[in-house]
């Protein structure tokens, strides 16, 4: 099943292909921030886009390509419902073929606070229509980033 049928390879979307390297992710995020600025007049929406894309792309670098480097493909299409984003890589599949739940732990003491595991929580808090599939050795992740949204967390 395709991840998101709304993504089609025509000219109305932003596409980037880059290496699975944290500094390449930085450069991609800088290019996206500039490229998407006309579609994101509200500062909080720009924050959301950068946070979610950073988390998703860092996960690909750190987990999918942990055994060796590869390429990351990113496509973003601005629509009336928000930005439709699709990320593909040829790295290792998600454990269990599923996306992490991204639940925050609530330790009793600050000493036992985890030093990681916050990424999927942020992705799930800030994105909509999150979908993952593995297709012929490829990880496909898609989601929507609504515009001018307020944070759902109380």
């Amino acid at each position: 099943m395709p991840c998101d049928p709304r993504i089609t390879p025509d000219g109305a979307e932003l596409q980037l292909v880059f290496d699975s390297d944290p500094f390449a992710v930085r450069r991609a995020l800088a290019a996206l921030t500039t490229g998407l600025a006309p579609h994101l007049p509200v500062p909080t929406d720009r924050d959301t886009v950068e946070i979610v894309l950073a988390e998703v792309l860092n996960n690909v670098v750190e987990h999918a390509y942990r055994a060796g480097p590869g390429r990351i493909e990113l496509r973003i299409r601005p629509t009336a419902e928000g930005l439709i984003c699709a990320i593909a890589d040829h790295g290792l599949p998600m454990p269990g073929g599923m996306l992490p739940q991204g639940l925050l732990s609530t330790p009793a003491t600050t000493d036992s606070l985890p030093e990681g595991g916050y990424g999927w929580h942020l992705i799930r808090m800030l994105s909509q229509d999150l979908c993952y599939c593995r297709d012929r050795g490829r990880n496909c992740l898609s989601f929507r980033l609504a515009r001018t949204q307020s944070a759902p967390f109380q």
Partner: peptide, 16 residues
Amino acid sequence: AFLDSSGLGAVVAVMK
């Protein structure tokens, strides 16, 4: 201007 979950984890690590 920007901190991601890795940066957040590093701040938590410093606290610890």
